[in-house]
Structure formats: C-alpha cells, structure tokens
Amino acid sequence: MRVLEVDEKRNRLRLVIETPEDLYYLLLLVRRGDIVYAWTTRQLRIERETGFERGERVRVYVGIDVEKVNYSKFTKAMRLTGRVVNAPEDLHIKGSYHTLSINVGDEVEILKRSGIGALDREVLARATSIIRRLLLISIGDDEITVGILSPVGVEIRSSVPYYPRRTDRDTSIRETIVPALTQHLELLKSHYHFEEYEDIVVLTTERLFEAVEEALSKTGIKARVIKVSEGGEAGVYELLRRPDLRPMFAEIRSLVEAQEASSLIEELFKGLRRVITGLDAVEKVSEWGVLEKVVIADDVFFDENTRDRVLDLLDKASSAKIILVDSESEVGKVLKKLGGAVAKLYYPLPNT
C-alpha cells in the first residue's frame, strides 16, 4: 500500500491499493460513518419531455458516507456502500445510495469520522512494510497442492491429483513420477506467473526428493526444495509449524503471528488463568486495561454481524498486541471453536 497523505488535522488518509493484500488492510481502516472518496462509474439520467431515461455510464469521483463494508477474502474484492455526500452536480445523485468497488490500482481518500487512532497508525505501518510473497508447491505421491504465503496469511489455491506413469514392468520412482510431474509443473509455471513471487518453495517427501529435483531442472524452475514427512496440503501446514524453518519466513508477519497465537492457545490448554476465550469474554474485560495480547479469527472480523464489535474492542484495547489469524489455517480452525477470540491478560482476574 502506498500512503500519499496522512492529514491528522483533517483526519484524512489518501492511499493507493497496490496489491490484493492491501484490501485486507483497507478493511481494517474503513469504518461505518467514514467518508470514502474514489473513482467509480455511474449511469447518467437524461431528462426528456416524456421523463427521464437512462444514458451512458460515465467515470466520476464521488464520496459516500459508508454504511456497509463487504470484503471477500477468496476473490480479494471490496465493496463499500453508503449515501452519496459529494458528486458532480449534473449527476443529481447526492443523497442516493451507491456502491464503490475498490480494486488494485485504485486511489482512495478516507475522512475518518473518529479521527486517526492508534489502530489506524499500526495498520498503516503494517501495510507499508515490505510485502514478501512466497509460492508454496507441496508434492505428494499423487497430489500437488499450491499455496501462497503473504503478510496476511497462507492461502491454499489448489490441490489437484496427478497420475504417475503406470507400466506392467518394474520401474523406478524416477521413471513413473518425473514425466507426469514435469507436465504439471509446466502448467503451474504458466498459470501462477512465478516471476511475481519473491521465492518459490517446493515441499516433498524423502522418497520423491530426487525425482522432484529432476522435474524442476527439466522445467527450468528455480526453487528451494524442502523435505517434509507428507506431501499435499498436509505438507504446507507442516512447513509452517517447523521451528527449524522459521528464519526462512522471518519477514512474513502472518506466520510469526500465527505461531504466537498457537502458543497462546497452548497456554489455555495448560489451564493458565491468564488466558480467556470467546468474543463476549474478551469484550467484557477490554475496558479494564488488563489485555496484554488479543488473537481474533479473521472470519469474526469479516462478518457484518460482529465487525463493529471487534473494531470497538480493538479501540478499547489499543495498548494490547492485536493478532488477526486466518480462519482457514490450523490455528484459525481451533480459534473458531473457542469462540473466535482468545486473549492473554497481564494478570489473572478473580472470576476468569
């Protein structure tokens, strides 16, 4: 994300969305009641003697008073809906509802209703840090899983079967695996545009290691090959858990924070009274200044029914470390079962 302006006096932010991950951060910045300006298209209304009729769609710069925020983590699409507060007079749309679709490359201006707070500054700091994206390819005996690791989490993009060559005679692993694997890697290379990623990490088992290296050489793919106990999707999650590989991902904030979240959940299962679970319980103590760390499943934040509650909680717990975890990750799935939120207190409370 490129920050063009932070005007503390006017409570104004001007930003450019540079990557799909930036929309995730924009979601953290925009709240109900904020005024958001962006370029959009609007259909003209042409006045005739017989009444109004529809004209062509034109590109216009409008501002809306945000009432609804919608974000899809799978399609990486954001839509902001609200009443138009500023637009060209000849459009006659002031006061009507309009939806802004925000995409990569768009410039957005936000007038913060409640001012630019500590959480906003933290989000801007994260969003403008170096964005490092890794492509993960996990190869098993008959399945290839592709995932993308970015600052906002790991996303499994595909998990597809591949079919090693079958013969009637005894053949080596190399003879059965390499041809099919080479073909699939060529397809992945054209589909995922490998040049867009900082690094490519290929995961495979000890048994397939040499065959995978040969297939990579045949396709000209330069990648770091790491041995895991199992290929496919399980191999991706094994990679993220392994402490010996953490230095490789030191710049990936999402992985570091997921590890922190996992440690916090382990403390809970050990029966430590400094850890509380559930959004209701965390909300209850958020005003008491006892929250040291708060971990929230991002689905709770994306849900329109709970998003405002989460934002209020984050405001009250401004001194605490806030961690948003991908709900589809291993840690996120556990977190959802615990009520979507876990928090660590500075000290145990009598009734916790």
Rank of each mutant, 00 (worst) to 15 (best):
E196P: 07
R207W: 04
F194K: 03
A180M: 06
A180S: 12
E195H: 11
L187I: 07
S190N: 15
E175M: 03
V202A: 02
E196K: 13
A211W: 00
K189Q: 14
H184R: 15
T176P: 09
P179N: 10
L185W: 00
L208P: 09
A211G: 03
S190Y: 13
V201Y: 05
S190P: 12
L181V: 12
E206V: 10
V201E: 07
K189R: 14
V201T: 07
A180R: 01
F194R: 02
E186D: 10
T204R: 00
V201G: 01
T176D: 03
A180V: 03
D199Y: 14
E175P: 09
L203I: 07
T204M: 04
H193C: 14
E175T: 03
R174D: 10
R207I: 11
D199E: 12
V202C: 04
T176E: 07
A211I: 02
I177H: 00
T176M: 14
H184E: 14
E175I: 07
H193L: 10
E198F: 15
Q183G: 09
I200S: 01
L188H: 02
F194C: 02
E195W: 10
F194V: 05
K189W: 11
E195Q: 09
E198N: 15
L203M: 08
T176C: 07
H191N: 15
E210N: 15
L188P: 03
I177D: 01
T205Y: 00
H191L: 13
E198R: 12
V178R: 03
K189A: 14
T182D: 04
A211M: 06
T176G: 13
